[in-house]
């Protein structure tokens, strides 16, 4: 059973990935997020996904984390394949299974002519899922190899307002506590006879029963915490210092340069290619670029 802690808490080790500057990690994550949105070529998307997965090898992640990653990827890819198998709207498409027949009263009409599983949609979904899978894998790699304090330090150095960073630190710090409280309240509710998984109004009633005591604790805690941090001169000065200074190594600078340059280049080429395919702008000088985008991006 995968527990929430196995997802939420980083594994601190001394590897090349762990040593990376959090700013480099965040910039790389943002750059890769833009790259996956720009790409359309399945082979290139697969290479990028495998490259990201390859990052877990030097990070020496524990088995539980790898299992979690595998489980999440499986769910994600399955979900995208399933939804696209249903909604695929390109030709050719081959019906392999009928979920709702067009003749079925009400549902046939409601779904505008039935609901089918299309063979080509399954393949299309698998390819498109690579985008989400790449971002999810890289995000988890970054999250699992970075202490939240370092991550937030990195965000602050990237001009995220300190107060916001503080709020996120607070949220991260209290996440295990809130999860534990929710689990306790659910256990108590069950003992009282509630069924948390009962569909419909029962779920809402249970949610209200769980959220009220959990949030009441949050409200109480907020008061105490506010007094505590104000007594430590929170927001007393416009600028503040940090115990741990972040320094970018040559490796970090190289990673930032490569990923950002790659993202800018790929996005620029794809914009030009899309302008061409949309019959908006064409230049004979860019024919090589169009060909490159068509075959590799």
């Amino acid at each position: 059973m995968i527990r929430a802690r196995s997802i939420s808490e980083p594994t601190i080790k001394d590897t090349i990935i762990h040593r990376m500057d959090p700013r480099a990690k965040i910039i790389m994550l943002v750059a890769v997020s833009f790259i996956v949105v720009a790409l359309d070529n399945p082979e290139t998307m697969l290479i990028l996904f495998l490259t990201v997965l390859g990052g877990f090898i030097p990070a020496k992640m524990p088995l539980i984390k790898l299992k979690t990653l595998g489980f999440l990827l499986l769910l994600l890819i399955w979900g995208t394949m399933y939804s696209q198998a249903l909604f695929y709207s390109q030709l050719p498409r081959t019906v392999i299974f009928t979920i709702i027949s067009p003749d079925l009263p009400f549902l046939g009409w409601f779904t505008h002519g039935g609901l089918f599983i299309y063979k080509e949609g399954i393949h299309y979904g698998a390819v498109q899922a690579l985008r989400s899978a790449t971002v999810l894998s890289l995000g988890l790699l970054m999250g699992w190899t970075t202490d939240p304090r370092d991550m937030l330090n990195g965000l602050v150095r990237l001009k995220i307002p300190y107060s916001v960073a503080f709020m996120v630190v607070t949220a991260v710090r209290f996440l295990p506590i809130v999860i534990a409280e929710v689990a306790t309240v659910v256990a108590v509710q069950r003992l009282k006879g509630f069924k948390p998984t009962k569909f419909g109004y029962g779920m809402i009633k249970t949610a209200l029963g769980i959220l009220t005591p959990t949030l009441a604790n949050c409200v109480r805690r907020a008061g105490v915490l506010a007094v505590s941090i104000e007594s430590r001169a929170f927001r007393a000065n416009p600028t503040r210092t940090y115990l741990k200074e972040l320094r970018c190594s040559n490796f970090d600078i190289a990673i930032i340069t490569i990923t950002v340059s790659l993202a800018i280049a790929i996005i620029s080429v794809k914009i030009l290619f899309n302008l061409y395919t949309s019959e908006v702008y064409y230049s004979t000088y860019l024919r090589e670029i169009y060909a490159f985008a068509r075959w590799y991006l």
């Binding site: 999440l72 709020m167 607070t170 809130v178 959990t214 949030l215 949050c218 907020a222 506010a226 929170f234």
Partner: peptide, 24 residues
């Protein structure tokens, strides 16, 4: 106020714990 910021962040945590984690 600081209390408001803390409360918002705790509500953010609660929403994350009650919605995002189970829904993953």
């Amino acid at each position: 106020k600081t209390r408001h910021l803390v409360m918002i962040s705790l509500f953010g945590t609660a929403s994350f714990a009650a919605v995002n984690i189970p829904m993953t």
